[in-house]
Design a binder for these strands. Sequence first.
DNA 1: AATGTGAGCAACCGCAACCTC
DNA 2: AGAGGTTGCGGTTGCTCACAT
Length: 408
Amino acid sequence: MGRSPCCDKVGLKKGPWTPEEDQKLLAYIEEHGHGSWRALPAKAGLQRCGKSCRLRWTNYLRPDIKRGKFSLQEEQTIIQLHALLGNRWSAIATHLPKRTDNEIKNYWNTHLKKRLTKMGIDPVTHKPKNDALLSSDGQSKTAANLSHMAQWESARLEAEARLVRESKLRSHSLQQQIGSSSTFASSSSASTSASVLNNNKPEAPPPPPPPPSRSSLDVLKAWNNGGWLKSSEGSGAIASTVGVSGDLESPTSTLSFSENAPQIMNAIGGENNNNNNDNAMPMIEFVGSSGNSSSLVKEEGEQEWKGYDSSINTFSSGLHEFTMAMEGTWVHETLRTNGSHDDIVEEGFTNLLLKTNSEDPSLSSEGGGESNNGDGSAGHSDFYEDNNNYWNSILNLVNSSPSHSPMF
DNA sequence: AATGTGAGCAACCGCAACCTC
DNA sequence: AGAGGTTGCGGTTGCTCACAT
C-alpha cells in the first residue's frame, strides 16, 4: 500500500548541499549529462536521491541560471503572468529567462504577494481587497480560479471574435468575387459567421471547455497568428465555439462568477444583451477605473514601486473589472485603422509594461521611454487602450514564447 | 549579550502527468 | 490498454540570517 518511494531513502543524505556534492553533481552532468536522475546519484557518487539531484541541478547548479535581485521588468512580468496564469510557476518561468520556477515562486511569496497586499490588492485574485473580501468565506481561491477562467474566457471570446471578423471579411470578399447568392452556405467558416452574426444557436453543442491553461493559450496563439482560423476552416469548430454567443454551454463560460457574474454573464449570455446589437460579434471590453492608490503604504527601499501601484491597479482593475459585451464591433480602434493588430502585438510586452508605467513619471526612467498620451488620470479611452495593449502584450508573449515552453 | 521574531530561500514531499514497455 | 517507472510541478517546511527588544 502507498506509494513506492522515489528511491531507496536508507542512508541517503538530505538537507543543504555541500560544495563537494555540488562539484560532484556538476562534474558528472557536465561529462555525462544527467541521463536518468534515478541512476545518477550512484554513478556520480552522491548519497542523494535522484530527485534531490535534479532539484539541485535545475534550481541552482544549472549554468544558465541568473541569480540575484529581480528587475522591475521581471517583477512586472511575474505579476501580470500570475494574474493570467495563477500559481503556475513553471509556465511563468518560461518567460523569465534564467529564472527558475522555484525562485519565482519564492520571490512571489516573499515579496510580490506582500506588496500587492499592501497595495490593497488581493494577490490571489488580483482584485482590490475590498472586492476580495466580498467573498468572505474563504472562497478566494475559487474566486481566483474563476477570475482566471473568466480572463481566459474573455481571451477566447476575443479570439473567436477575431475569427468571425476574418471570416466575415473573407466572406465579403468572396461575395464580391463570386456573387452574393450562396456565399455563406459555401463556406463553413463563413456560415459560421453567418450563424454568429444572426445570433443563431449552433447545431452542435460546444466542445468541452478547455482547461484554462494550455488550450487557452493555444487559443491566444491561434488568435495571434490566425492559425486557428486556418485549422478550423471547414471543420465547424468555429461554429461550435463561437456558439457561446448564442448558446453558451462551455463550463468556462457558464460558471457562476461570484464577482464578475454580471459582466461576464452579460457578455457571454446570448439572451442577456445580444438583443441590443445589430449583430452578434463579440466584443471584449476592458472597463476599469483608473487606479488611484497614492495613499498606499510602501515598503522601504521600494522607490521603484512608487507610482507603480497605479499601474498595478490599472491592470488589476482591467483584469477584474473588464466586461465583455456583445457589441456591434469588437475591433480596437487601432486595429480598425491599421487593419492589423500585428502592429500592436509587435510592441513588446516589456514596452507595454513600461508604457503603462510611463503614466507615472517616477517610473519612466527604466527603458520604454515611449509615452502614451495619458495624462495620468487614464480616462476611459486610454484605459481601454492600455488594457487592449495589455492583452496584446500577452499575445505577443505567447507568440514569442520559446518553443520548449510547456505552456505555449 | 541573550533572546525573540520575521524574512528569505533552499530543499523536501507528494501528486499528477508523461513515458516506456 | 494498462501497469510501472520517471519526471515535472506546486505546496510546504525548516534552516539561516538579520534585526529588534
